[in-house]
């Protein structure tokens, strides 16, 4: 019983970064921006969060710095992909590389370490002991924020004027332009929202999930989010369900680590699960046609 409980708890923790980045990516998905920079935005957010928390000895500053880092990356993406009209795939890949190189460089330049940086001075995001029972209670509060954001984003995209414009910018930008709303501005907003949320996901990784920064610590989570968005066609509630599922597989992989199966093989589980999910999705979409 306690093992199953532990599994569900750890799935929720592992699902949170994928969920946050996924919600951010939903905005760019509906605006028809091909956003593969989520991985890099998350990594930058994870680094700036640790740097902020370390420098100010405060998790609030760390969290703000994480979101700020994601926003800076998103601003760069907007500058190139929207303002300078560079190809989105190209810009996204370059930003991912800039994030990987930049954080590795800054890790050595600012803290003089290679690999990972940890210190008692880094303040972690506090846990909330909500009276929600043994599964939902006592998590870093970003977990609750992420769950709430999924609901908010669903309403925001489907029911508000901004959401309508967002979807119009994706479906047919010319119509939106003709209606007097700049589709480019809407696209830029969608990228900035996804940057803020990916930055938050990164801050959660480095200040909530663990309390350290390691090179390339996002480790493909941004790409899993991208797969989740494709699987759910961007619907935030779908993203919520799918990320919890991936969290579960991550949790299964981790709980297998104590057993005879080598750790390297159990770590494959979330990635293989993504492949399987894509296969199931392709079956379903064939039936629809």
């Amino acid at each position: 019983m306690s093992l199953a409980l532990e599994l569900v708890r750890s799935s929720l923790l592992a699902a949170t970064p994928v969920l946050l980045a996924g919600i951010g990516g939903a905005y760019t998905y509906f605006a028809n921006v091909f956003n593969i920079a989520m991985e890099g935005m998350m990594l930058i957010g994870a680094f700036t969060a640790v740097a902020g928390s370390y420098a100010a000895r405060s998790w609030v500053v760390g969290l703000a710095a994480g979101i700020g880092g994601g926003l800076v990356a998103a601003a760069l993406f907007t500058l190139f992909a929207v303002a300078l009209r560079t190809d989105e795939f190209v810009t996204g890949t370059a930003i991912n590389m800039l994030a990987l190189g930049g954080t590795t460089y800054a890790l050595r330049q600012m803290f003089g370490v290679r690999g990972a940086f940890m210190s008692g001075q880094i303040q972690a995001i506090p846990r909330w002991n909500l009276p929600l029972g043994p599964v939902l209670g006592g998590h870093p509060f970003v977990v609750y924020v992420a769950l709430a954001l999924a609901l908010v984003a669903d309403w925001h995209i489907r029911r508000t004027r901004f959401g309508l414009r967002l979807r119009a910018a994706g479906e047919d930008p010319r119509v939106l332009d003709a209606a007097g709303v700049s589709s480019q501005a809407v696209r830029a907003w969608s990228i900035m929202i996804s940057g803020a949320l990916c930055g938050l996901a990164g801050a959660y990784l480095s200040l909530g999930y663990v309390t350290l920064f390691a090179e390339n610590m996002s480790n493909g989570r941004g790409w899993i989010s991208l797969a989740v968005i494709i699987l759910t066609r961007g619907r935030p509630l779908g993203i919520l369900v799918m990320s919890l599922l991936f969290g579960l597989f991550d949790g299964i992989g981790m709980s297998l680590q104590g057993t005879a199966i080598p750790a390297q093989l159990t770590q494959m589980v979330p990635y293989i699960a993504t492949l399987v999910a894509l296969r199931v999705y392709s079956l379903r979409s064939r039936n629809e046609h």
Partner: peptide
């Protein structure tokens, strides 16, 4: 730090592609 090369490469990519476009 030699990782500076990675940063420089990404800047080269962004600058060249943007200037081409």
């Amino acid at each position: 730090p030699s990782e500076f090369a990675l940063v420089l490469q990404a800047i080269v990519v962004l600058a060249v592609v943007a200037s081409r476009e």
